[in-house]
Design a protein around this nucleic acid. Structure first.
Lengths: 167, 167
DNA sequence: ATTTTAAGTCAGCCTTGTTGACATTCCAAG
DNA sequence: CTTGGAATGTCAACAAGGCTGACTTAAAAT
C-alpha cells in the first residue's frame, strides 16, 4: 500500500510500478493453477501440455486445418507435427484430406480424443468455475476485459474469431 | 453494468461451459502476450524465461534463500541451479552465505542484474499498464480477484507473503 | 508449364523441466 | 563430541517441446 504517486511513467493515478508488479506475479501464480489440473492428468498418460492445447483447439474448431492450428498455437509446424503425429497414431485425432483443396488436412477428434479432451477441460473448468464463483460476475467481466487487452492484436483477432464461430 | 441476470454471486446459471472455455482461451492468449516482450529481449541475450523469473523474485525479495526461490518458482533445485549458476557466473546475481545459518545462501542482484531485471520488467509493465488503462480500474480489480481465486492455496499464501513484505 | 502453397518429414540443436546419486557444510540433539 | 538431518551444490542422464534448415510430395494458382 502507501506510496501513491511514485509512478515512473506518464499515467496519472493508480498505476504504480508496484501494483503492476503484483499484477505480473498474480498472472504467474494463477497460470500455474490454471494448468495444474490438466497437467496432473496428462502426467500419467504419455502426453503433455502441448497435446492438451491441440486437443482444445481441434475441439473448438472441428475440421480446422493444420495451418489454422499453427497460427492458434504459435508454434512451428515441426513442433506441432510431433504432437499431432502421436495423437493421430494413437487414434485421438483424425486427419482428413480437404474436399475443395486437397492439399489441406482437416482435423477432427475421434471419440477417444473427445473423451480425453473432455476429461482435461472438465478439470480445468472446475477450477475456473470455482474461481469465477468466488470472485463474482463483475470481477469476471473485468478479468476478461483485462486479459483481452493484454493480448497481441493478432491473438485478439483469433480469440474473437473463435468466439464468433461458436455463437 | 448489469446485463440480464442479476445474479448475486451465488447463482450458478451464468457459468456455462462455453463461457468457461472462453475464459481458458483468454488466459492462454493473454499469457502469450504477457511473456512476449521480455521473451523478445531475452532471445537476444543467452537467457530465457527461467532467468527472468529468477531475476524477478530476487528483485522482489533481496536476500531470499535458494529454498525460498525454489518454492516460489515451483521447480527442482537442479533446474534452478543451472539458471542461477549462469547468472552468478555472469555477475548478475550475488550469492552470500547466511550469517545465522551458514548453510543458506542469500541471493541479491548486482547492479548489472538489477539493470537487466529493470529492462525486462519495464517491457512487461508497459503492456500491463496499457491493458489496465484500457480496461479501467474496476476491471483491474476484478482481474486481480479472479486470478487470486485461481491460484493453488500454497501459491496464494506466497503471493500474499510477497505483498506484505513490500507494503 | 511454372510457381506457390500446404503439409509432412528428417536431422540436429536449445532451454528447461525431471530423477537419482552423491559430496559438503553446518546446525542441533543426544 | 558424535551423529543425524537439513540446506545446498553438483554430476549425469533423460524427456518434452520449442527452434532452424533442408527437402519431398501433392495440388492449386498463375
Amino acid at each position: 500500500m502507501a506510496d501513491q504517486n511514485t509512478n515512473s511513467g506518464e499515467t496519472l493515478l493508480f498505476l504504480t510500478d508496484e501494483q503492476l508488479r503484483q499484477g505480473a506475479e498474480a498472472m504467474f501464480f494463477a497460470y500455474r493453477g490454471f494448468t495444474a489440473d490438466p497437467d496432473r492428468i496428462l502426467a500419467g498418460l504419455s502426453y503433455g501440455r502441448a497435446h492438451h492445447r491441440a486437443l482444445h483447439f481441434i475441439h473448438a474448431g472441428p475440421g480446422t486445418t493444420v495451418n489454422n492450428l499453427l497460427n492458434m498455437l504459435g508454434v512451428t509446424k515441426q513442433s506441432l507435427n510431433r504432437v499431432l503425429r502421436t495423437m493421430i497414431d494413437d487414434g485421438l485425432v483424425e486427419s482428413k484430406v480437404g474436399r475443395n483443396d486437397r492439399r489441406e488436412r482437416h482435423l477432427y477428434l475421434t471419440e477417444e480424443g473427445a473423451a480425453l479432451e473432455r476429461q482435461l477441460s472438465d478439470a480445468q473448468r472446475a477450477r475456473m468455475r470455482a474461481a469465477y464463483k468466488q470472485a463474482g460476475p463483475e470481477a469476471v467481466a473485468g478479468f476478461r476485459k483485462v486479459l483481452e487487452s493484454m493480448m497481441d492484436p493478432e491473438m485478439r483477432r483469433q480469440y474473437h474469431r473463435l468466439r464468433e464461430g461458436r455463437s
